[in-house]
Design a protein around this nucleic acid. Structure first.
Lengths: 216, 216
DNA sequence: CGATTCACTTACCAAGTGGTAAACATTCAT
DNA sequence: ATGAATGTTTACCACTTGGTAAGTGAATCG
C-alpha cells in the first residue's frame, strides 16, 4: 500500500475494451464534476483542479468534451438521470395519495444524506440560469409533468386540498429541498445536521407538508 | 462678523464634506456589489467589473476594504441591515397571530419584486458557506430568535399547530424564499415571473402556509 | 501659506483561467 | 507487422483575477 503515495495513480491496465475504459473515464469525470459543481460550485471549480483530483490532465477532460460548458451540460444530464431513476424506482413501489408524497420526501432525504452534492447541484444549476437552467428544466420536465398530474388527480378525488397544482409543486419543492439542504439556516436555528437530527427534521417536515396538502 | 453664520467647526456634517462624500462612495460600492453578488454571484463578480460599473478603478474599492472578502462582509452587514429594517417596520404595524405571518410574506414578496438581488444575495451567501455564512447567521440571529419566540407563543396560545418552532421556521423560510425566488422552477411548471402571476403565487402560498401552520 | 492627509489612479505582478497545438503512447484493424 | 485511430500528455497562449507599490491632485489643517 505504501507504493503509490506520491505517484498520481496511473490508470492500470483495466479489463475490458478500449470503449469500455473510455466510458469508465468519462463516468469518473462526470462523477467528480458533479461532486465539485454541487458543493464548491461551477465557477469555483477549475478544470485543472478537477483533472488533478482524478490523476488526469485538464486536456484529457477537454478531449471528451470541447469546453467547460459542454461538460456542465453532460453533468446535468448525468445528474438528472440519477434523480429520475431514484424517484421512479421509489414511486413504482409506493401506494396512492399521501403515501406517494411521503415516499418522495423520504427519498429526497436519503439522497440528501448519501449524495448531498446531487441536490446542491440542482440548486447550483438553477442559480446559474441561462442554457444550463433551461437544460435541467427540460430534463426534469416529464417528471414534473407527472407530479402535477398526480396532484391534480388527488385534488379531483378530494384527497388533497384544491389549489393550483403547479404552485403547490413549487411550494412542496422549495420546502423539501430547503429542509434537506439549507444547512446554514438549520444551524442558525440550532440544528446541527447530524444523522439523528435528520430523522427529526424529516418527521417535522412530513407533518408540515401533510397539514398543508391533505384535505381536512 | 457675518462670515461664519453656521459654525464650520464640524466640517464632517457639511453635505459636500470629504467625509460625507466618502460615505456616499462606500454606499454606492456596497449597493453595486450587493446587486452583482446577489444576481451574478460572488465568484462571477470581479472587482474590475464592479469598479468599472461605478466609474472607478478597482483600487478605489480596495482602498475602502482591504480585500474582496472584506467587501463581502461589509455587503452582508449592509444587506442584513436593510432586511431587518424592512421586516421590523412591517411587524411594528402588524397584528397578532396569523396576521404577522401574512405581513411578513407580503413583505418578502415586495422585496422579491422591488429588490430581487437582496433575496438572491441571502441565498448566495448561505451557499458560499464558511465565514460569510456564519456572519449572515450572526447578523440575522436576533430576528430569527424573535421569530421562533413568536411561533412558540402562538403554539402555547393554541393558535398554531404545535411542533418544533425552529423546524417550522426553516420550513416556512424555505417555502417563502422558494416561491419568491425560484424563477427557474416556476418557469418549469409554466409560470412566467410576471407581476400579475406574482399576486397569484402569493395568494396560493399564503393558503399553503395557512393550512400548514394554523391550528385546525 | 505650506504641510499633510485623503481618496483615488496608473502601473504592475504572480497566479490562475479556459482553451489550442502538437507530440506521444497504446490499441485496434488490416 | 504496420498504419491508423484513439486517448492522453506536455507545452503554450491570451486573458482575467485579486492584490501591491508608488504616485497625484485636491481638500483640510496648523
Amino acid at each position: 500500500m505504501a507504493a503509490t503515495v506520491t505517484a498520481p495513480a496511473k490508470p492500470d491496465r483495466m479489463p475490458g475494451s478500449r470503449a469500455a475504459r473510455t466510458r469508465e473515464t468519462e463516468h469518473r469525470i462526470l462523477t467528480a464534476a458533479l461532486e465539485s459543481f454541487g458543493t464548491a460550485g461551477y465557477d469555483a471549480t477549475s478544470l485543472d483542479a478537477l483533472a488533478a483530483g482524478l490523476g488526469l490532465s485538464k486536456q484529457a477532460i477537454l478531449y471528451h468534451w470541447p469546453s467547460k460548458a459542454a461538460l456542465l451540460d453532460a453533468v446535468i444530464d448525468h445528474a438528472c438521470l440519477d434523480l429520475v431513476v431514484e424517484f421512479d424506482g421509489v414511486l413504482r413501489d409506493a401506494g396512492e395519495g399521501w403515501d406517494r408524497i411521503e415516499a418522495i420526501v423520504r427519498s429526497v432525504f436519503r439522497v440528501a444524506i448519501r449524495r448531498p452534492e446531487l441536490l446542491g447541484f440542482v440548486r447550483e444549476v438553477s442559480r446559474l440560469g441561462g442554457d444550463a437552467a433551461a437544460r435541467i428544466s427540460a430534463d426534469l420536465e416529464p417528471f414534473v409533468a407527472r407530479a402535477r398530474g398526480f396532484l391534480q388527480r388527488e385534488m379531483d378525488a378530494g384527497r388533497f386540498r384544491r389549489c393550483d397544482p403547479g404552485l403547490l409543486f413549487v411550494s412542496a419543492y422549495s420546502t423539501v429541498l430547503g429542509a434537506a439542504t439549507e444547512v446554514e439556516v438549520l444551524r442558525a436555528v440550532g440544528f446541527e445536521p447530524t444523522a439523528r437530527s435528520t430523522v427529526v427534521r424529516r418527521r417535522e417536515l412530513l407533518s408540515f407538508l401533510r397539514a398543508a396538502i391533505v384535505a381536512p
